[in-house]
Nucleic acid binder design. Structure first.
Lengths: 149, 149
DNA sequence: TTTATTGCAAAACCTTTGCATGTAT
DNA sequence: ATACATGCAAAGGTTTTGCAATAAA
């Protein structure tokens, strides 16, 4: 199944802007992109499109579960591909703004329990960590799974 | 020490807008208030002030550690008194928008460890849970501490 | 051909800022 | 008296929307 069929399967016409934006996400080394990021990347790729279209496509992709939207402290939202892997937290570098991802099963089950104990059914959650990178980029894991480098 | 002295101690003149906004936070049943919320509450209290002043005061109060700022998915920021209690997570009701707070020591230490393992020193973090309230507002705790109601 | 999608420009929304006026110390 | 704070209105940044033109099905 190619990208065009993928879009049709979620009920969207396979238009150039949509295909291009999907490509951008699949090709980008940075998983977390803002509307402005995408707008610039598409233009740089010699494809002309309007910023309004970017916003509309991102919104549609989010509603169909293709993308996930987050906001990391700043004013602009960022989107990432929803690969249907485990729900993960984000670690944002306070110096560079770099975003890394992690998953911890213990935390997730604890959050479910906490919500339950407070009378709620957990529907979704976000965890955002802010930290300064230490000089040596130690990466020995003590159980948490850094999903990506 | 009264509110006026409290403001002077953090290096701010004890002006009417600042005293009023501090009062609003101390008196509000809802701990989490947006700039617009405060603007309306102050006006309703027969005190005239500009919205720009509300934003400026909130910003100053945040910088001096009197308030903490959060953003729960939506577009507008909310502020809460920083009582210097434990750093807490938020549970947002997806129906009503109500916000409850909780603290869990295990999660906090786990997050410190995760950041450390990924090469970072944890500086700050946010946890936001979204959930639907169950009919019976069960509140039996299994270890987590709902800080308030 | 029919319906969805795009682009542009305008508007909406939240927040910040310039500047003249007013106020706490 | 002096430095800081305020109000207003204007501008800023991000996101949404109306509408005529366009492209996918």
């Amino acid at each position: 199944m190619d990208h065009a069929d993928e879009l049709k399967n979620i009920g969207l016409k396979a238009t150039l802007p949509r295909l291009k934006i999907l490509d951008i996400f699949r090709a980008s080394p940075d998983r977390h992109l803002s509307a402005e990021d995408i707008y610039r990347l598409v233009l740089a790729d010699n494809t002309d499109l309007g910023l309004a279209t970017v916003y509309r496509v991102l919104s549609q992709f989010e509603q169909t579960g293709l993308l996930k939207r987050s906001q990391f402290g700043g004013s602009k939202a960022v989107y990432e591909l929803n690969d249907h892997e485990r729900h993960h937290g984000h670690l944002v570098c306070t110096r560079t703004g770099d975003v890394k991802e992690f998953f911890d099963a213990g935390i997730e089950s604890r959050l479910v329990a906490i919500a339950h104990d407070m009378g709620y059914d957990l529907a979704d959650y976000t965890i955002t960590l802010f930290g300064r990178a230490r000089s040596a980029e130690a990466n020995a894991s003590a159980g948490a799974v850094p999903l990506r480098g």
